[in-house]
Design a protein around this nucleic acid. Sequence first.
RNA 1: UCCCCUGUAGCUCAGCUGGUUAGAGCGGUGGACUGUUAAUCCAUGUGUCGUCUGUUCAAAUCAGACCAGGGGAGCCA
Length: 466
Amino acid sequence: MSVIAISDVLAGKFPVDKEISVHGWIRTRRDSKAGISFLAIHDGSCFDAIQAIAPNNLDNYQDEVLKLTAGAAVKVTGTLVESPGQGQSFEIQATQVEVLGLVDDPDTYPMAAKRHSIEFLREHAHLRPRTNIGGAVTRVRNSLAQAVHRFLHEKGYMWISTPLITGSDCEGAGEMFRVSTLDMENLPKTDKGDIDYAEDFFGKETFLTVSGQLNVETYCCALSKVYTFGPTFRAENSNTSRHLAEFWMVEPEIAFADLADAATLAEEMLKYVFKALLEERADDMAFFQQRVDKTVIDRLNAVINKDFVRMDYTDAIEILQNCGKTFENPVSWGVDLNSEHERYLAEEHVGGPVVLQNYPKDIKSFYMRLNDDGKTVAAMDILAPGIGEIIGGSQREERLDVLDKRMGEMDLDPADYSWYRDLRRYGTVPHSGFGLGFERLVAYATGMQNVRDVIPFPRTPNNAAY
RNA sequence: UCCCCUGUAGCUCAGCUGGUUAGAGCGGUGGACUGUUAAUCCAUGUGUCGUCUGUUCAAAUCAGACCAGGGGAGCCA
């Protein structure tokens, strides 16, 4: 039989006075001496639970219905009716309440019908999705992911499945996790006494990817408009509310495009996905507005309706130097901006997302295109109020001689990048792209303060439970 | 990795200038009441006081180490 979603029932997609069945988990049970019990049942399909009325003449009323507690699983069959009570439009007059699974110890069931701290929920990641906040985050995350794919698909971008296991130890974006099948208790050694990775699964050292960018550039230089959207891994010892060891990243790559094209695509994408979110998940967003961040909906609407400010790094330095504020870290041309600087620019000076671009070459990666001034590269960061850097991107260096020179300056061995260099040897073209940290996007869109609470099973230093 | 804060009942916390049987709210359980909305009212509290070591006649309370969580910083997405 097909299972009916509670979201469809509450949306009025089923005729009243007809029999239906719903499946789900009990949120609360309230008993009335009028001879009925009220069951609030949720199935995750929407924010709201549906109310079922269980009369005390059900066969299993005493033995089972009265034992239902938060978290128990049920199938309820009955007549869909318009609710005479306040707070819901429809409810089910149950003729049958089938108990699929009770909670064996309600006293210690972690997700009791009460407020919990966000940290407590995080430590019960397997039960967290049953809560209002866990369900809402999950639905918003899904809505945003689908909107990202839809937006890029409609724009003609092709989704490229770049590898998670990489043989290049030089992706240049942080510490990497090693992938190996060697016996760590008994490592094979070469004559020189080093670990012999020729004995390893791939016959060489391999790692989990820190970015799909270098790989997706190869497909960009063949299919023109491409993107990756998948997990990435960084073995950095980062303990912040903005970093994960395993996180998801959206990385579009556009051929025949400059930095401004990439910034435009990023801006259009953010506007598109936030608009889709507000339309698709009004119920969840109302919850976040009420309980998590009073400004979240206004903030998203501001992003949708305002043009992003674009600002050169050089101008940003001037603004920071002349703003009259004293920063812990002094500002001068050539320094990398700190959180406090980025926050001032996005939150106070602009009051919205800002595209910072054309950074000094010395603080950016080798593959970013050198500008004509010889001092800066065509790189951009999009800074969002409250969360900081949400997007990082650049125009890629397409000139082989300049690329080689930059690699030389940064002590990188061109031999390690032979296939990447080939793209510049065989029909090279200007191209640009960016990376969007998906968890940061979800955090920004919900008002959640910590990316660990917007990914189902967060991976952070010392934490890989579940 | 660095700085700061925290770790007491299923959960959120109080207690901590060391001193008899460690408390409250919520949850749960029992009852009352009610077409109820995490309802209301009454009753119900034996928990390695994060772990280990030390100081002391005496440690939840003081000290040290360690572990865990949070906030900030750095790295970045």
